[in-house]
Write a protein that binds this DNA or RNA. Structure first.
Length: 793
RNA sequence: GGGCAAGUAGCUCAGUUGGUUAGAGCAUUCGGCUUACAUCCGAAAGGUCACAGGUUCGAGUCCUGUCUUGCCCACCA
């Protein structure tokens, strides 16, 4: 279900900037024309995000693409408003809200994040009415608001001010009489212990004002210039007024001092202007009743967060939830379905628009000028997006919501509340909170910071599959990712590997070898050890990929199939297959493992797998089933047998590298091992010979080490490689001695453990048995190593 | 002020319920055009798991404290 919201404030800002180039303000165009311009902009750029999603290979129902301002969706928004209003959960009220003087709109608390500022704490003397030589000194960071002061508050326990309680002060500059009141909210330790109270310009003071029935004096206009209540300071910008007021106070000797002071102030999340706490009439949603069942849903586990730690963050916010300010003084968005009678001021909420006032019958009605917070439409996304009741029934509730941490309050919490309130059912069961993408220096990538990596550029340079696979691989559950261009090489290289391996296999395949079915019996196709092994490994990889996906461990899933495909299938099986590439059983396995791997890889890398798939089948891979784990194909014994061969091959390669044996030279190998091991190696000597370029391989339990040969010990097996050139005995001694040292220290470690009676008593049996077995194996290896060393000496 | 996350190889990061020898990619060193792939192949080197205590037979993993970094929340005028 793809779609976009209308991003009210952000979009309006962009278009305002655009028309500003022609010297126009939105007011110059008027509401209707301006909104038209925004629609034009939306048509032109709004599809970018959808286009990017498509380029990334996102598999959505594109014909269901929805926009929050679509007709039907807008209907749901208005409908929900009315339902909440009728239920008494929406009200209009005076309140100190976050006001952005630049955007000229109210903002919710979540839209006005606090940032630290370096400011000053100014100490100002307010003279007593009865005796102008006596003062109360208050401390403030925003002296310009003093023009709106209607009281000074002190803590009732504060002895310094006890005798002044109830007395009257003369507010300097405006000469208004204000009372000294007592309230326990005041922190005696801060500043002077006396606080100026400005109920119209500060949320705390507002509360005090309500409680103590103070006067509310608003001294600013919406553009944060001082208004007629500010006397001589009228028309000055708030910060300009601050400077002038300080000058004037200084002149009157009422400014005691100014201390540097760090304070934190709300900033508009869109334009970063400092918020002005401002008294105005706004619309609110009562959140407590909506939050209650939404808290329950999470507490009872009907909705789960991944990773779990976000549960606490969610609950903490929900349990302290404040009413939601939903009106915005902008034009781009859903208008409130609210109508005022100009005659009797009756308020009517109506979906169609009333013809006349239901109270007085006047036809002189006007719709509220405001629009709704964008989130007031987005919170309906899980259900308002469906045009068809049947679809809604079928798809709702959805299984998982995947989103960013920063949006838990804005969106996730509210969707849960809306779902329960309007659908009587939670909107989704799992909430997966992914990490934040940051740049090299740890800064969050964002368009406004300009530090983004454009996915389209990466796709051009590395490919969409490379981009996807790289990011998935480095994203552990909910961990932030630090992204740089270089990281995309990882996915690109893997895509290259898949491409080449597929090319190799497909170019060798004969059609008749692809048809056979893999049935439960290994023998049906004369399978070799390697055939059985790679199938066993594939199904184990598949099992682990499935498990990882079920737990939202996408990186583990990606790396699981990566590890299998590259380092088991390509590095070992395909290499081994070259010797018998025309054998039907080899071709069958190559084909089966490839096509199954492609199906597993498809969700991670849709483009390359689709392309390769077309060489195998005329159909699309998108609708192919996910492979089933065939448990009977998983065989640990086969794994072990193959591992023994891999170990011998690795040991010989090691010798070749250590002794700088000419890569082209064919060598002879002798292996001395217990009977059954020797037999096993002998039966599969072809593998060894092929992968280490050996001329001849002799195995047995009575092999005699030839003089001048290098040796490697694998468990109970001794591998000898006779060297043509004169062997450097000292070097060989060094090699063996080092191995002895390593083996010894490991044996000692295990020995310590096995000597510990507590360990033997308390550790689980299988752990103890494992240790014993391992010690015995290592002891045998050590014995062989020492014998060989002695032999040299 | 409260909370969360992170500190593991030169770099970037994995490491699920405590269990044998802590992994990967990149970078490094050595050797390779071995007829799918040099965006590759083979081999190697590289870690007192931030620090200090504790629990445990056993700790990268659990507990406590400390340090460093980042983020979130909060009405210190």
């Amino acid at each position: 279900m793809p779609g976009t919201d209308h991003a009210g404030i952000a979009t309006q800002n962009v278009v305002e900037k655009q028309i500003a180039k022609d010297g126009l303000r939105r007011q110059d165009l008027g509401r209707e024309k301006f909104v038209e311009r925004v629609w034009q902009w939306k048509e032109q750029y709004g599809s970018t995000i959808i286009m990017q999603l498509k380029k990334l290979g996102s598999s959505c129902d594109w014909d269901r693409t929805r926009f929050t301002m679509d007709e039907g969706y807008s209907g749901s928004v208005a409908d929900v408003f009315k339902r909440l209003y009728d239920k008494g959960l929406i009200y209009r009220g005076d309140y100190i809200i976050n006001w952005c003087p630049r955007c000229q709109t109210a903002l919710s608390d979540e839209e006005a994040p606090h940032h630290e500022l370096q400011g000053h704490l100014y100490y100002i003397k307010y003279p007593l009415k009865e005796d102008a030589n006596q003062f109360v000194t208050v401390a403030t960071t925003r002296p310009e608001t003093m023009l709106g002061d209607t009281a000074v508050a002190v803590n009732p326990k504060d002895k310094r001010y006890k005798k002044l309680l109830g007395k009257t002060l003369i507010l300097p500059l405006v000469e208004r009489e204000i009372k000294i009141i007592a309230d326990s909210m005041v922190d005696m330790a801060f500043g002077t212990g006396a606080v100026k109270v400005t109920p119209a310009h500060d949320p705390n003071d507002y509360a005090l004002g309500k409680k103590h029935k103070l006067e509310f004096v608003n001294v600013m206009r919406p553009d944060a210039r001082m208004n007629e209540n500010a006397g001589d300071y009228r028309d000055m910008d708030r910060f300009e007024a601050r400077e002038v007021i300080l000058e004037d106070l200084k002149e009157k000797k009422l400014l005691v001092k100014e201390d540097p002071h760090n304070l934190s102030a709300g900033h508009c999340y869109r334009c970063h202007t400092i918020i002005e706490p401002y008294l105005s009439k706004q619309w609110f949603v009562k959140m407590k009743p909506l939050a209650k069942p939404a808290i329950e849903a999470v507490k009872k586990g009907r909705i789960k967060f991944y990773p779990d730690r976000w549960t606490k963050v969610y609950l903490n916010w929900m349990e302290n939830i404040q009413d939601w300010c939903i009106s915005r003084q902008i034009w781009w968005g859903h208008r409130l379905p609210v109508y005022y009678c100009k005659k009797c001021e009756e308020v009517t909420v109506s979906l169609t628009g009333p013809e006349k006032c239901p109270a007085c019958g006047s036809v002189d009605m006007a719709q509220d000028e405001d629009v709704l917070d964008t989130w007031f439409s987005s919170w309906l996304w899980p259900f308002a997006t469906f045009k068809d009741e049947k679809d809604l029934k079928y798809f709702y509730p959805t299984s998982a919501l995947v989103t960013a941490q920063e949006i838990i309050f804005f969106w996730v919490a509210r969707m849960i509340m809306a779902g329960i309130e309007f659908q009587k059912e939670i909107p989704f069961r799992d909430v997966y909170i992914h990490g934040t993408v940051r740049d090299d220096t740890g800064k969050k990538m964002s368009k406004s910071l300009g530090n983004i990596i454009d996915p389209l550029e990466i796709i051009k340079e590395f490919g969409a599959d490379a981009l996807r696979f790289s990011i998935i691989s480095i994203t552990a559950v909910g961990q932030d990712v630090f992204l740089s261009k270089q990281k995309f090489e990882f996915g690109r290289n893997f895509a290259n590997k898949i491409w080449n391996a597929s090319r190799f296999i497909i170019s060798n395949l004969k059609a008749e070898n692809m048809k056979a079915d893999l049935c439960a019996s290994y023998d049906a196709h004369n399978m070799s050890l390697a055939d059985k092994w790679i199938l066993s490994r594939f199904y184990q990889a598949l099992e682990s990929v499935e498990k990882s996906l079920e737990n939202y461990r996408f990186n583990e899933a990606a790396l699981g199939i990566y590890e299998f495909f590259w380092h088991e299938f390509c590095d070992w099986y395909i290499e081994l297959s070259k010797a018998e590439i025309n054998e039907p059983h080899t071709q069958l396995i190559l084909y089966k493992v490839l096509e199954k791997s492609l199906r597993v890889l498809h969700p991670f890398m849709p483009f390359i797998t689709e392309e390769i798939w077309h060489s195998l089948s005329p159909e699309t891979i998108m609708t192919q089933p996910w492979p089933h784990v065939q448990k009977q194909m998983i065989n640990k014994k086969i794994d072990g047998q193959m591992q023994a061969i891999i170990d011998v091959i690795t040991a010989v390669r090691n010798i070749r590298a250590a002794w700088n044996i000419d890569p082209k030279a064919r060598i002879n190998i002798l292996v001395k091992a217990p009977k059954d091991t020797a037999q096993h190696l002998n039966a599969n000597s072809g593998y060894i010979k092929a992968l280490v370029k050996a001329q001849d391989l002799k195995t047995g339990d009575n092999i005699v080490k030839p003089p001048r040969s290098a040796v490697a010990i694998v468990k109970d097996t001794q591998v000898y490689v006779p060297l043509e050139a004169l062997i450097d005995l000292e070097k060989e001694k060094g090699r063996i001695s080092k191995k002895i040292e390593e083996t010894n220290s490991t044996i000692n470690g295990i020995g310590q453990r096995l000597k510990n009676k507590e360990f033997l008593k308390k550790a689980p049996k299988d752990i103890v048995e494992g240790e014993k077995k391992r010690k015995a194996e290592l002891a045998e290896t050590l014995r062989l190593l020492e014998a060989n060393l002695k032999d040299i000496a």
